[in-house]
Amino acid sequence: MGRPAPTQKRVESMSNGPEVLTPRSATEAIELFGDGGDTAIVGGGTILVPELRLGSARPARALMLHRAGLAGVSKDGGRLTIGAMTPLNALASLADPIAACVSHIADLEIRGQATLGGNLCARNTDAPRGDLQGVLIALGASVRSVGAGGERTEPTEEFLANRDDRLVLDVSFDLPSAGAYAYLDRAHTHEYTALAVSAVRTSDGTIRLGANGAGPHGLRLPSAEAAAANHAAAGAAALADVALFDDAIASAWYREKTLPVLVRRALDQLEDAA
């Protein structure tokens, strides 16, 4: 070994970083989070750690949740509750469309670290992130969160439209009788999914549809749901429910051509799954 012996070095990067809070329980996490406000929530860290290192995120405080509990999947009758800190790998054995969606997020290593809460709260700013948003909308999931005004439990789409300064505790939903997931296939494991449609048949036979990559966050497709008896018509109707956009992965034009196809495929799959 020609190299000199290592000297004791102090890693200086991020020395001007945020105040770091590490709660040891959910109660403490809620207390420390308070009303939020310039607080970055560190779940798995797969999105935030590079942003903090590069300085594109400069929060005043970082709330690290790895010791706060908040992880785990519990079942009460036909209802599932999933803690915000549950790693995505732990969802891979659940029913479709969750399992099908999770198996297409990044790779095994990332899925072992990334969390449900992080995915739900991920922003579309530089890539179509948050693949589970459309899935949870289709499942009719409720999101329980805290922040200014206290605890709130609301449908996923309402949470997504108003999620600034909220700390997610868990999501819960009734197990569907069938589920399906249709998405734009990708050349490489780490390519983001440009567009995806989730379809769910609830235990009372209602069909619910959610889309990802079709708006500023996951969206419900009510017009397509109303036309769901005819799969092709539902696909065309879905265009009324979305706000398509250009990004580095797909143009709005391409999304417009693809969305009806994915809606039709998801409904076809749902029919086959029943």
């Binding site: 860290g45 797969t46 750690v49 690290m64 790895h66 790779d107 290593e109 072992g112």
Partner: peptide, 21 residues
Amino acid sequence: GTCTVLVDGEPRRSCLIPISA
């Protein structure tokens, strides 16, 4: 994946894991 190490036996991206975690 060039930074992957094993954390308690599981492969993880060391570039994404805060040291305190």
